[in-house]
């Protein structure tokens, strides 16, 4: 398993209230962002152990340096069709003290987005997305959906 530690200089942190730094990634062509302060790790997963009988959003579990991390299939979570990506990446975050890693198509960059570009969720946003999106940013590469990690992890279990 190859691991790329995210090294973020303090300056890239969202010190000022006027800007926030995001780790960007794409799922089914859509650009998403997670606050950089919440990202623990970015990795290429191998040996995902499936959890039969578990919720469909859970692709499985991986061993991340002795920690068991739950892999969340972002396509399933966001009600997107299953893709045929040859390579996938994982963005590890923590919610409620529990490590999760988001299975995405590709990981972009760390970008700092000024507050001025932030827009509230459009009213027409799909219900599932509206639930997990914190805000939408206008960027050069198109619209970026900033995700709310805790809400993203609030997966209903039967």
């Amino acid at each position: 398993m190859t691991t790329i530690e995210t090294t973020v200089a303090p300056s890239a942190d969202n010190h000022g209230k006027d800007a926030e730094a995001f780790v960007t990634f794409t799922v089914a062509g859509q650009l998403f962002g997670v606050p950089v302060t919440q990202v623990q790790d970015i990795l290429t997963p191998d040996a995902i152990a499936p959890v039969p009988g578990g919720p469909p959003e859970v692709r499985g579990l991986i061993n991340l340096r002795g920690r068991i991390v739950t892999v969340i299939d972002m396509r399933t979570r966001l009600a997107l069709p299953r893709g045929d990506e040859k390579t996938v990446m994982c963005v590890t975050v923590e919610s409620d003290g529990e490590p999760y890693t988001l299975l995405v198509d590709s990981v972009g960059d760390v970008i700092k987005l000024p507050r001025s570009l932030r827009e509230a969720n459009p009213a027409t946003l799909d219900a599932v997305w509206r639930d997990v999106a914190d805000a939408v940013y206008r960027t050069d590469q198109g619209l970026l959906v900033a995700l709310h990690i805790d809400r993203l992890m609030a997966i209903e279990t039967k």
């Binding site: 959890v51 009988g53 919720p55 739950t70 992890m153 279990t157």
Partner: peptide, 11 residues
């Protein structure tokens, strides 16, 4: 198990 897996009673 992670909280989201605890609803599964097999584990």
């Amino acid at each position: 198990a992670a909280p989201i897996l605890r609803g599964t009673r097999f584990y």
